[in-house]
Design a protein around this nucleic acid. Sequence first.
DNA 1: CGTAGGTATGAAAGCGCATTCACTCTAGGG
DNA 2: CCCTAGAGTGAATGCGCTTTCATACCTACG
Lengths: 354, 354
Amino acid sequence: MTAAPTVYDVAERSGVSIATVSRVYRNPDSVRAATRERVLAAAKELGYVPSGNARGLASRSTGVLGLCFPDYADPAADADDDDAAMLYSDQIIRGMERAARRHGYALLIAASLQGGPESLVAKVAGRVDGFAVMARTVPTEELEVISRRRPVVMLAGPREGAESLDHLDHIEVANEEGQRELTRHLIEDHGLRRPAYVGTAEESPDVEARFRGFRRACRDAGVEVPDEPAVRVGMMTQAEGARAAGLLCDRPGGRPDAFVFANDQMAVGALHALERRGVAVPDDVVVTGFDGITLSRLVRPALTTVRQPMVRMGEEATEILVQRLTGERSGDPVSLMLPVSVARRASCGCGEGE
Amino acid sequence: MTAAPTVYDVAERSGVSIATVSRVYRNPDSVRAATRERVLAAAKELGYVPSGNARGLASRSTGVLGLCFPDYADPAADADDDDAAMLYSDQIIRGMERAARRHGYALLIAASLQGGPESLVAKVAGRVDGFAVMARTVPTEELEVISRRRPVVMLAGPREGAESLDHLDHIEVANEEGQRELTRHLIEDHGLRRPAYVGTAEESPDVEARFRGFRRACRDAGVEVPDEPAVRVGMMTQAEGARAAGLLCDRPGGRPDAFVFANDQMAVGALHALERRGVAVPDDVVVTGFDGITLSRLVRPALTTVRQPMVRMGEEATEILVQRLTGERSGDPVSLMLPVSVARRASCGCGEGE
DNA sequence: CGTAGGTATGAAAGCGCATTCACTCTAGGG
DNA sequence: CCCTAGAGTGAATGCGCTTTCATACCTACG
């Protein structure tokens, strides 16, 4: 690749000034048709591609939105099964991209990788007009700094207390409500009395909210209300889910009649573990997840779970960003709570498939 | 958002020159520890975020790879079903992102929208170090121009003759071989003798190759070999698939015993149409697709199809781009052909689910 | 005690484009 | 026939950063 041609080359070749070349691209109507043709022709001959960087620098806007998401590569997900590898971050990506496209923006995506003083966010932040961040992907402090400079919307994350990110726009799903309804279904409709909740050691606000929903359902139904999750795992992976399932099966007080996992990944891991142990789902024990990832429909038995509207979340995020950028919206931070729906499937004893 | 702070602000505040500020980020070790601390502190106080544009301009590289994909929004895909909305472009995105991340790149994605002298590709091309293009997303001529300036890899597209894009790196899947094997399975293993192939009006190389595979299988098995697809639809959508199914059912010569569609979307549409007409699949007629999109597993009966390794394709694309950029690879264009696998599922009369 | 060889830093020159301002050149209106 | 509006174009400046190149300052050594 030899040095790429610039406006100067095009200008020289077509016998105009660089200002005119620029105008041909930014504001074609302000250039006489004949001139425009000449410029375009020269550009084509030269293989001229305007530099997005120079453009962004000069006009201080890039036409790009960003998304930072966690590096959720669950190694247990079958490597040869593309479907299973699709997590909900993919759905958010699609939602954002689709909406961004409608507004003429492209989307820059990057998963959290650490490194140097120059972290992921900084890299993304420096190249976009605004961006969304999935919860707990980015150090609070850094976000704090960046959000002073460009619009940021938090996805599915906190909004509580000490986070100090209260001034950011924020979209979450009805975690508590969803888990409550799912749990209610298990207790009231399936008559289960000893459900066990599996959460995580490091308390994410989402997982917290889910546990609250679980407890509320227990209380409402007159079932014993635990103070703590029955098990707390390190990461929400299939491996950890399998481990949790083992712990619950061997629990001194007897096996619970339902394993309520804080996410689908763990629930799927548990399904595998239970199969290996010869424990039948849902006959011997009921298993549920949370998220509604694709994989939850593909496993057998299909997983009863709470479906989050991820594509929609991505779309809403884009809308908010665009509104902030156009100035169409300003002032108080938005706080959206998207509704969820319980998917009753085979793993709790409900019908086939759906 | 007030004017964002720049290197100048940080430099002034920490009492150094802008060169030093820059070095703190680009090459930390070349700055004395004490100085570095001062600069970093000032940067944080100011909320300094380096401008990716300025950086890209000055260093002529962005650390971003791009992907252009077609605007495949099949309106028939259930709007409320996120899973169904995931097409294979999403899998390519994931593959590319994952690999890009490993090499320290971010990914810029954009679907083809048209507009002005300033098309999609141009926008993407101007902001990335290199990019991949899904077949038929971008006007050949434009690609031609751009590819003179930065590495481009074509995905799943041509490589044949007149395309004049022969000098581009290129990854495709074994369309012909896959379709041949699928068709062979139908004929030999299921004893079908009158399969009908549904292709498209505008001949894409992929669809062409699939039809060749279909014909070859017919020839090999001694079944009548059609010169033309039984039906040619306008777009490969569910709606068109449904229409094609109708046409085939009402065909004068009698209904074929197998509908072999050029992609999954159409096959799914056909499945719905057949159900409405009371035609049983696979008992009355066998239906197959191509691609292996997620939806193909979710419909009932699950769709027999040819699975393309999309995630892998994305990964390979990234690898090639990175090699070109690092100079690790140069010279002749790469041409990769990825193997596919036939997924025998219920719609051809094979086992449950998988 | 002078000097070679680093090391830490600064000055300045772009990178490729958008944009303002000034200027030229018609086309009408008086 | 002169003056005034535009319309079309060019010159020049700056966007925020990277990168030589040069300079100042040490340290170690003869």
